[in-house]
Amino acid sequence: MIKLQKIHRNFQVGDQIVHALDDINLEIAQGEYVSVMGPSGSGKSTLLNLIGMLDHPSSGEYYLNDKNVTELGEVEEAQIRNKNIGFVFQAFHLVPRLSAAENIELPLMLAGIEPSIRDAKVSLALESLNLTERARHKPEQLSGGQRQRVAIARATITEPAVLLADEPTGNLDQKSGHDVMDILEALNQRGITLIMVTHDQSLGDRSARSIKMIDGRIESDNLNKIDHATVS
């Protein structure tokens, strides 16, 4: 469903050009669980942002569901982000003045969905992530793990096909990190395509497929033969 062809992404820094992505060719099928690893500055976030259509390639083609989305208008891009892609960030990025429920509701609000439908979806999401008691709490009143669960609920509230997670456990302690991983993997088992950037080798090993990046290139792309039970 995701197909990147000869993708380059260059940044001009001073009078130098940084090749954040250097000739990336990549195909990811619906429902895959892919981890992206590699040293800092190797282009992992840039790749994820590109797939999430927050960023544009300097050259190359991006096909989403067999449709070339490289040069769509910003309104269409915004719609695709809203309906087909969910983001989970290391820094959670919750709106501080909004309650947990209101944060989760945001993508539905932006899509202009009726409040009654929104409320139903949000309470379901809260329930499935064990956040019902926290619905009215502001982010500052939540623990890190709870915040990331709110962020996951928000990322999945529009039932997107792809979930992009950039170091989702980077700001969490080990216990809540594992909880978050379990939730993400459960979502993947129910069919969502999960692409996760991580530093942590043990987390990277849990995925069915792991991509290793170095200097903007894909260094290796392996299928892991792993039994989840032994790892967790």
Binding site: G52, L54, E74, V75, A78, Q79, R81, N82, K83, F87, A91, H93, V95, L106, P107, L110, A111, R154, T158
Partner: peptide, 13 residues
Amino acid sequence: AEIGLLKALGASH
């Protein structure tokens, strides 16, 4: 950050 987030969640210009 909030505005960037709104964009990521699907807000147009």
